Amino acid sequence: MATSRRVSRVSALIKREVSQLLCHEIKDDRVGAGMVSVTDVVVSGDLQHAKIFVSIYGSDEARAETMEGLASSSGFVRRELGQRVRLRRTPEVIFLEDRSIERGDRVLTLLTQLNQDRPLGEEEE
Rank of each mutant, 00 (worst) to 15 (best):
I94S: 07
L108C: 00
F53T: 04
A62R: 14
D46W: 10
Q113K: 14
S100Q: 05
I101Y: 06
T109H: 14
A50Y: 06
Q83P: 00
N115K: 11
R78A: 12
Q116D: 12
E97A: 12
T66K: 09
S44W: 11
R89F: 15
A62C: 01
G58C: 09
S72H: 15
F76Q: 03
T90R: 01
G104R: 10
E68M: 14
D98C: 08
S59L: 09
T109P: 00
V77K: 09
G75K: 02
V107K: 10
L96V: 01
R99G: 08
V77T: 04
A71H: 13
L108N: 13
P91V: 10
F76H: 08
D98V: 07
I94P: 00
I101T: 11
R84Q: 10
I56F: 02
V93P: 05
N115F: 04
A71C: 06
L110G: 01
R118Y: 03
G82K: 05
V85N: 08
E92P: 00
L111M: 10
T66Y: 07
G75N: 05
K51F: 08
V43E: 05
M67E: 05
R118C: 12
R118Q: 09
T66A: 14
R106E: 14
I56R: 03
R103V: 05
Q83L: 11
V38Q: 10
S100C: 07
T112K: 08
L96H: 13
E68A: 07
E68Q: 12
E102Y: 02
E65R: 12
A64M: 09
Q48R: 15
I94V: 13
T66E: 08
R118W: 02
D98Y: 04
R103A: 02
S100I: 03
L108M: 14
V85I: 15
T112I: 00
S72C: 12
T112P: 00
V43P: 07
A64F: 03
E102H: 05
F76Y: 15
I94A: 11
I52E: 06
S59W: 10
I56D: 03
R86Y: 05
I56V: 15
Q48Y: 07
L47M: 15
R103E: 11
T39V: 11
V85T: 13
R103L: 06
Q116M: 01
R106C: 00
L108Q: 09
R106P: 01
G45T: 14
R89M: 07
V93I: 15
V38M: 05
